[in-house]
Design a protein around this nucleic acid. Structure first.
Lengths: 245, 245
DNA sequence: TACCGTAGGTGTACGCCGTACACCTGTCAA
DNA sequence: TTGACAGGTGTACGGCGTACACCTACGGTA
């Protein structure tokens, strides 16, 4: 029975269990305090045990990214490309709000993981099915950039710290200190102009969700316009063919 | 004279000299192989000497970011907002091509450095001077996202490795392996569709400069349209008021 | 000229990290 | 019964950031 207790106490390790534990740990304590030793302890196991399932820490990170990407909602069928892309990207954003360490992890790795490739592939497929040329789909993927994965490089983003002090600590929206406001009046102005509620580049209120959708729609509308006027490489980049106003 | 030689051999340390050496070292060998010990050796000095001028490694990174941001061309006077913004961002992009480690450094830090704040502030000022409301300027800054600093989160970007193997090694544009192409046909298609020459998310040819300008102009044109039709919070996000085609 | 405070470089040491490598142990096929 | 092998263990190494005590050279004052 002692050994039964043992068996119950520690489910055997597996690559999948490691990945999920790593994601949970990063969610809870932030990416920079996720170490192999840490993670092993969390799993009730000695550090080197992990290496029987994961080649090294980089592979661990790749696996974590795959877990995150796998949480993005599947394609909704029977929707126009614009609706489909919009829904998927907003889902990706929700996923990343649960895993604020993911953008940094993604950017620090340099090869695409299979799950990420599959996601990008199906996104391209959506554009192609919507009547986009391969060329236009290509450029459009670049234009969307990181927004396709639900984040957009907020530059100096309070939410990046989310896990660091524990998710229960909602980071008081510190107002812009006056001497800073004086040195950067334009920033001070836009910081107070928008009636929002979260913190980003400006220390003040700003509704990230609103900003995200604003930018996303700005892009999607521009893309729609390109596609509807029959984009080809030689007619389109706005620089060359500014449309009439 | 021995001491003269000494004096010549080692210019005294200074915060500025440290920052410039750090940037050069990161340019040459990549961010992940930049350590305090490494940098100290490079400066002919013992590691702890650096700490007389720099509080810790995070502050070093902040200083490096300031150096990079400081290299962005100043505002060109007497240009329309669109030209001014475009020129500045393309300059930022050139700077980041010289310092491929910078996006990761920027994303890994979470507070804005003074130089970055000054840059963002003057960018907002350009929009304001161009007749944008503070509100619209705010949203537009978010919409541009990391592109404002000359990069755009390429997700899986070959150039991120640039320094790692030395800048003289131009990373042969490895073609997409066939089994990958088979699993992700849409990616394979757009990889070969565009007639470009560098590597990014797709292993194949792709002119990053073209893509960058394509996306930048897509955004700028969308922004121009918003501003010209007198944007206000309640009329604009494209979702609510799709313009007529 | 003698002194001393201080700025700035040095040396040692600590506790983390990732992980190589040898080892043990329990399970299952033959 | 045995022996291969999958999977967990223990030890150890080199590298990291950096705390802390130390030394040393110089500039200002008496």
């Amino acid at each position: 029975m002692a050994e039964q207790a043992e068996t119950l106490r520690r489910t055997p390790l597996s690559r999948d269990r490691i990945m999920r534990a790593a994601v949970a740990l990063a969610d809870a304590t932030g990416l920079e305090s996720l170490s192999m030793r840490n993670l092993a302890q969390n799993l009730g196991v000695v550090p080197m045990a992990l290496y029987k399932h994961v080649a090294n820490k980089d592979e661990l990170l790749d696996g974590m990214i795959d877990v995150v990407v796998g949480e993005i909602d599947p394609l909704v069928p029977d929707a126009g490309w614009k609706q489909a892309v919009r829904a998927r990207i907003l889902s990706a954003r929700q996923v990343l709000l649960r895993h604020p360490w993911a953008p940094l992890a993604i950017e620090s790795r340099n090869m695409a993981t299979p799950a990420a490739l599959a996601y990008l592939n199906s996104m391209v497929g959506t554009f192609r099915a919507g009547g986009f040329s391969a060329d236009l789909a290509h450029h459009v993927m670049h234009a969307m950039g990181s927004r396709i994965l639900g984040f957009s490089q907020e530059l100096f983003d309070a939410s990046r710290n989310a896990g660091r002090t524990g998710p229960t600590d909602p980071a008081p929206p510190a107002p812009l200190p006056p001497e800073v406001a004086a040195r950067f009046p334009h920033l001070a102005e836009i910081a107070t102009a928008a009636s929002h509620d979260d913190a980003s580049v400006v220390g003040q209120g700003c509704d990230d969700q609103f900003e995200f959708e604003f930018a996303l729609d700005l892009l999607l509308d521009g893309i729609e316009r390109l596609q509807q006027q029959g984009w080809t490489s030689f007619s389109a980049p706005a620089r060359r063919a500014p449309d009439s106003h």
